[in-house]
Design a protein around this nucleic acid. Sequence first.
DNA 1: ACATTGACTAATT
DNA 2: TAATTAGCCAATG
Length: 121
Amino acid sequence: MGATDVDDRAARAAEYAAAVLALVRRIPAARAMTYGLVAEVVAESLHRGGPRQVGAVLAGSSGVDDDGAPVPWWRVVNAAGSPPAHHLDAALAALRAEGCPLTREGRRVDLRRAVWFPEAD
DNA sequence: ACATTGACTAATT
DNA sequence: TAATTAGCCAATG
């Protein structure tokens, strides 16, 4: 059993990724969460990870989670309300299409109106 | 063990 | 508002 530590590391990474994707999937249309907020919520249960880890999960995601459900990655923006630079235009187009509150210039999400926080259902 | 890298953030200028 | 800087956390070589 020499590879258990490697397997454990992979399992923990998969667990973390699953938690992030599950949460992002719950963000309602026309709402948004920041990387930091997602990290805080996930850390409440897993006690690890930070904004950069959330970004790493989404960066590695194909846009669909393990259950085959679509992951609305464009609803996760940075603390300034900007979508990831890699898909800026696509994200802004998607956000606008679903009516997410944007700033006057339309380049960033208006977090004061759009931020969503998961509440006990 | 150390250096580098990133879909980050907060403070500073 | 935008650019810079330092701090952060985990993965990777």
